[in-house]
Amino acid sequence: MGTENTVILDGVGVKRALTRIAHEVLERNKGVKDLVLVGIRTGGVHLAHELALRLEEIEGEKVGVGAVDITLYRDDIKGHAEHLPVGKTDIPFSIEGKKVVLVDDVLFTGRTIRAAMDAIIDHGRPSCIQLAVLVDRGHRDLPIRADFVGRNVPTSLKENITVAFDAANKPVEVVLEK
């Protein structure tokens, strides 16, 4: 891998995509009332914070951001030689009756999203869960689709998509590795 890399979204492209997603989230939910963002560790959490900044800029109101770690909810736990390190799930507000926008960087098989939804529902009963992703690369194993997509990228299974972040956890670019 890494022999041929294509930049799918550069820094400006990522910013534009996030700004558009922010507007779509507001349009769909008619504002930020009862709205919270939950990012999937680790890339999704950084993107959730970016999205929250934009929502606040547009609406002038703060939106809660939580983080969910899906390690304990994985369905492929037996496939690993040893258990993966567990990250911290940190949802510092009640999600009871809230509209939860789940945020991840890349949507692939949908298994991560399934695990994240189970994790969220273990914290309470949200009124709905919507899904925002920066890149949808296809190849779903489960009946899951995103509500908000930054960029649809048809890929082959051999390819890999990485969202790069800088030291301040700001998204830098999206790269397709062949």
Partner: peptide
Amino acid sequence: STAENLKEINSRDIKKVPT
């Protein structure tokens, strides 16, 4: 550090994960 991250489960309403 795993224990530190698992602690949060003990203060949830539903104190259970499917692991």
